[in-house]
């Protein structure tokens, strides 16, 4: 256990000593928020206005709250995974610099080394994502706060679960990489592509039916749906209480990916947790096994 904690400390120190890496990771969600608000805020707002019944008296604050919910859920859903990829560079860097050989010619278990990489990346990603969540909550509080205490706690739990998932996914992928160029390439691909395939940039409901079916097989989809549900359901409930009919409320929830359909059936929230948690557990197992079975 002492070996593990010393290794963990080493990995985290190496991350935080690299000020460029730390601040880049930290500032990315903040930049995303500014870009979203600047370029997509009005688009989202207009879309809500167009799709709500004209007769329904929707206060400006509520509209802002809906937009804020959509924006912060998108940022958090993307950041939890992309930041994990960004933070999980040490495993590859150790290989590239030959440090991994130095570690592996000692009697330490391969599983101890691999779990230390996983946990340190997890801790660093959590720190950054909680900072991002704080920033997002600040923005929502200014724009229009409709999150209940329970939703706020659930949202933070979603962040933890998504970070666990993102760290496990990046660990499995990074296991096969051995140079800093490769990790940069993978980071770039994930940063640019993940937001689309998890439904963060564009709701999945706006895609074609075939694509929707394909995306419904990806676990990240359910992570985004959970974050979006907990970020927006307070504001949507407020709409309902103002007189929005049940069917139209349901339609908004479908359009916003708060409800995900898997071959025509709505996936309940506990099942979404089960899918994301299960996939994360499998990925962690695969990662540990890969390290254990790794040929010298």
């Amino acid at each position: 256990m002492k070996t593990f904690s010393v290794l963990l400390r080493r990995n985290m120190r190496l991350f935080f000593r690299d000020k460029g890496m730390f601040f880049t990771s930290l500032i990315t969600p903040a930049i995303l928020l500014v870009l979203y608000v600047t370029f997509l805020g009005d688009v989202y707002r207009d879309s809500f206005v167009m799709n709500l019944p004209a007769a329904l008296p929707v206060p400006e604050k509520l509209l802002d709250g809906l937009v804020a919910g959509q924006l912060i859920s998108s940022i958090l859903a993307v950041s939890c995974v992309t930041v994990a990829f960004c933070s999980n560079f040490l495993m590859v860097q150790d290989k590239a610099l030959g440090t991994a050989t130095d570690l592996r010619v000692s009697p330490v278990r391969a599983s101890t080394l691999s779990v230390a990489y996983y946990v340190s990346t997890l801790a660093v990603t959590l720190i950054i994502c909680f900072c991002a969540a704080g920033l997002c909550f600040g923005y929502a509080a200014v724009a229009g706060w409709y999150l209940s205490l329970a939703d706020t706690v659930r949202l933070l739990c979603d962040v933890v679960l998504l970070v666990l998932f993102g760290t496990a996914l990046s660990s499995v992928i990074n296991f096969f990489l051995s140079s800093q160029g490769q990790i940069s390439a993978v980071g770039t691909i994930v940063s640019s592509g993940y937001g689309f395939i998890c439904g963060a940039y564009m709701p999945i409901s706006s895609f074609g039916e075939g694509l929707q079916k394909v995306i419904s097989f990806l676990p990240g989809t359910y992570g985004t749906a959970l974050v979006r549900t907990h970020a927006m359901q307070g504001a949507v409930a407020e709409l309902h209480s103002l007189g929005l009919p049940e069917t139209e409320t349901e339609q908004i929830m479908l359009a916003m990916d708060m409800r995900i359909r898997f071959f025509g059936n709505t996936v309940p929230e506990p099942v979404m947790y089960l899918i994301l948690g299960g996939v994360t557990a499998v990925l962690i197992l695969v990662y540990v096994l890969l390290n254990k079975l790794k040929k010298r």
Binding site: T3, R13, L14, T101, D102, V108
Partner: peptide, 27 residues
């Protein structure tokens, strides 16, 4: 090794501490 395999950004103490822990040498 021919070239150092230790961690450049860390102090000498931190480097030796992390490597000693691999052999169960701590405290």
């Amino acid at each position: 090794y021919q070239g150092s395999r230790l961690d450049g950004p860390l102090s000498v103490w931190d480097n030796l501490e992390s490597r000693a822990a691999l052999y169960g040498i701590t405290g």
